[in-house]
Design a protein around this nucleic acid. Sequence first.
DNA 1: CTGTTAGCGCCTTCAG
DNA 2: CTGAAGGCGCTAACAG
Lengths: 348, 348
Amino acid sequence: MTRIGIKEIAAKADVSTATVSYVLNGTRNVKHKTRERVLRVIEELNYKPNDIAKSLKSRRTNTIGVIAEDVTVFNVPEIIDGINDFADRHDMHILLTNLRLHKRIGHNFDQLDDYRKYAENAVNELLSKQVEGIIYIGAHPRDLTGLIDTAGKPIIYTYCYTQNDPSIQYNDEQASFEAMSHLASQGHTRIAIISGIMNSLPSRLRFNGYYKAITEFQLPFDPQLIKLGDWEAESGYRLTQELLALDERPTAIVAMNDVMAVGVLRAASEAGVTIPHDLSVVGFDNREFSSYLIPQITTMDLPLHEMGFQAMDSLMCIIRGETPDPANHLPACKLIERDSVAPPARVM
Amino acid sequence: MTRIGIKEIAAKADVSTATVSYVLNGTRNVKHKTRERVLRVIEELNYKPNDIAKSLKSRRTNTIGVIAEDVTVFNVPEIIDGINDFADRHDMHILLTNLRLHKRIGHNFDQLDDYRKYAENAVNELLSKQVEGIIYIGAHPRDLTGLIDTAGKPIIYTYCYTQNDPSIQYNDEQASFEAMSHLASQGHTRIAIISGIMNSLPSRLRFNGYYKAITEFQLPFDPQLIKLGDWEAESGYRLTQELLALDERPTAIVAMNDVMAVGVLRAASEAGVTIPHDLSVVGFDNREFSSYLIPQITTMDLPLHEMGFQAMDSLMCIIRGETPDPANHLPACKLIERDSVAPPARVM
DNA sequence: CTGTTAGCGCCTTCAG
DNA sequence: CTGAAGGCGCTAACAG
């Protein structure tokens, strides 16, 4: 089966290859009769254009490279989905590179050198494939400055960032403030917070939101209510036990992710503390399982789809030589209200 | 910045373009001195080969197309990861198409016509990009015969299947049998099963495994223990209530997925039935949340990574003109033992 | 309105 | 061991 091309159909339709190209791309007016004839032959021969050849000539591939640090991490698929959403509408294609970071180097995200070579390879292969731009999806929010050199090709980061390139992140501080605001509006004043590891940006930003709310709503500030966790369920469990052992217990806990909220639930359950009657809980991330827990927890939904969509949008802007609107680079989170928040019980 | 190519480096190194090509690909012996010189110029000019041009000439793109019905569905990312695992080792690239089925047409998987056009477009675009083969990842196990025409390009399905093309699925019947076997080995005899919707292949296969175990272990067969669910938590909840209302309760329940197992847990909790003391539960899928539930549930892990890996392996076989080994097309599930199974309590 | 033709960047016989 | 030259499939001037 010899691949048939524009030449074959030109011969059979008794026109030149140029004419075929014109009807194919609508680049020029072609007499109706001729067009029909060409179209018919195309149909008959079941011709499929060769984008490779087309790209070589036109110097456009309509393809953008996506480097995902790990597609199996919860935030990544939804971001990819957002990228696809935009790409579909603009007839763009996605060349996906999966760094498989978790499986290759585990959680040692700090040793950037360990996977610099992976990233470099990925970029070079993408560049060789003539992608028109690159989107880098982190599995973890952090600074990647200096890690990647794209030789001038536009790149945009999301769920992570560098100091020189554009990046799309979500509004962490505001989200945290809103979680607090929701709790305050229910009448809570003693609100505890369990953080992720402190050398991570989200932890710091979410603390900012926490303090801002403390100030704005004039809540009592008690350092005992601030607990430093590590994103894992175990820390949520242990720190909640500490919180419940306080003379004056908090009436609500904000866990900086849903996984730690699982620990909160477990500790509460073991201590005979009923949620939400005795203790309100707000999580972060709106992980799928958050609605499978008992009770279903109130949590902050991350605008992952939008981040992917915006990353793609901004990247296309840059490719076209325009300047993307930075206002779109910090989409908001959204509180999902479920069953783990209630007004505080009367004082015992 | 005018893209520099083989020609520029040839000029600067004072050799012909052919020689550059030779050192680049190791196609021919080149005098050591000359090679060094060429290599140096390549370095200096930071030359990056153009795979597009290369592909046009060599008629090989080293790229395979992956069509995912929906990357946000739980099974898909891990399958993609398996594909990447293989692809990385063989220097292959992935052109990803995300059909976004759930967001576009919801759960109406039966109306194949609704998205036939999406699938057709995806295939045509991939074909135009000269992919060397296609992997189709279903979001739901079902028969897709007749949906897709790849014009002769090799295609392989996974997590779904057709009657004519090779596909990679997991061994559902055996998995179900093993879940039963595990329960039986703990001393359970009255084992209930909650199925997914019945017009799905997994439901039928898992029932086969159930019956096989009933026979093999000579367990009492009681139709009352067979409940028809719909994959959703609510059905697990409701059907467990029915099961618990029986005169003679089951001592164990197999839920055909972890989501329904959540319903089982909820119903048990409300009825004051303690898991695993009063009732053992085995789920299916090893969803991430299964280890966040209280108690953490014993469940069947699906060989998703392996399915992706095998799909890629088999596809490469076909591309090379070899015949893949069908023995690899039905990888086994693996029981993950956690805290929801115990020997049955003494008769009350 | 249509045909001719010169490349896009690279590989690969075929000569030397 | 190296160079010259044709061509992969398609587009876009430039002519008619």
